[in-house]
């Protein structure tokens, strides 16, 4: 029994040591990169905010950012997330107080390159600006947004994501 135990311990200890070293190395690299990762993400959000409400300043609340220009609140910016064709689409949406979209900027997406990825291009996202929430649907569904040829699913997903989230924020702020 003693021999057997010794054998098992002899096998197990190197594995345990490797696991401990690996855990330590990972924690160290996590701590090193953590600040950087958060900064990059914050920077990305700030960029999006300044695209959809140029020149405004923002105060963060629980659920959305309130955009003010010279002391007066003009609208809200919020992040909308949902499932696209392949993976999650995350987008920043700006909305004026009267329920018109001021702008849409895609933060991250992993759609098919060359097809679905075109939802992130200004040609597509600019269509949202100045549209009322209820009109943010594809033309085939009674809305005013033109789908991207060959990427109907991605186009459909992004309009749904934007509209549904905008409706929620509209009700909250009313």
């Amino acid at each position: 029994m003693g021999e057997e135990l010794k054998r098992i311990v002899g096998i197990a200890i190197p594995l345990i040591i490797i696991c401990i070293i690996s855990g330590a190395a990972l924690t160290a690299s996590y701590d090193l990169t953590k600040g950087r990762i958060e900064a990059v993400e914050q920077q990305r959000i700030n960029e999006s905010l300044s695209i959809i409400f140029p020149g405004a300043s923002f105060t963060e609340t629980d659920d959305y950012y309130s955009a003010t220009v010279s002391g007066e609140e003009i609208g809200y910016a919020f992040i909308a997330e949902g499932k696209g064709y392949s993976g999650t689409i995350k987008t920043m949406v700006g909305m004026y107080k009267n329920g018109t979209i001021s702008g849409v900027n895609i933060i991250s997406q992993s759609e098919t390159p060359g097809l679905g990825t075109r939802i992130a291009e200004p040609d597509f996202t600019n269509q949202f600006s100045g549209k009322r929430i209820e009109d943010v649907r594809l033309r085939g569904d009674g809305g005013v947004i033109d789908a991207i040829t060959g990427a109907t699913i991605s186009s459909h997903a992004i309009t749904d994501i934007v509209r549904e989230r905008a409706e929620v924020v509209m009700n909250e702020t009313r």
């Binding site: 190197p14 594995l15 990972l26 690299s29």
Partner: peptide, 28 residues
């Protein structure tokens, strides 16, 4: 130093650690 009975788990831990480090660096 790696006993042959547990060599595969040991290799996997080493590889997975490198992958996680690359993942974190890329993210940042």
């Amino acid at each position: 130093r790696i006993p042959s009975q547990v060599r595969i788990p040991c290799f996997i831990v080493v590889i997975a650690s490198f992958v996680t480090i690359v993942d974190l660096l890329m993210h940042g």
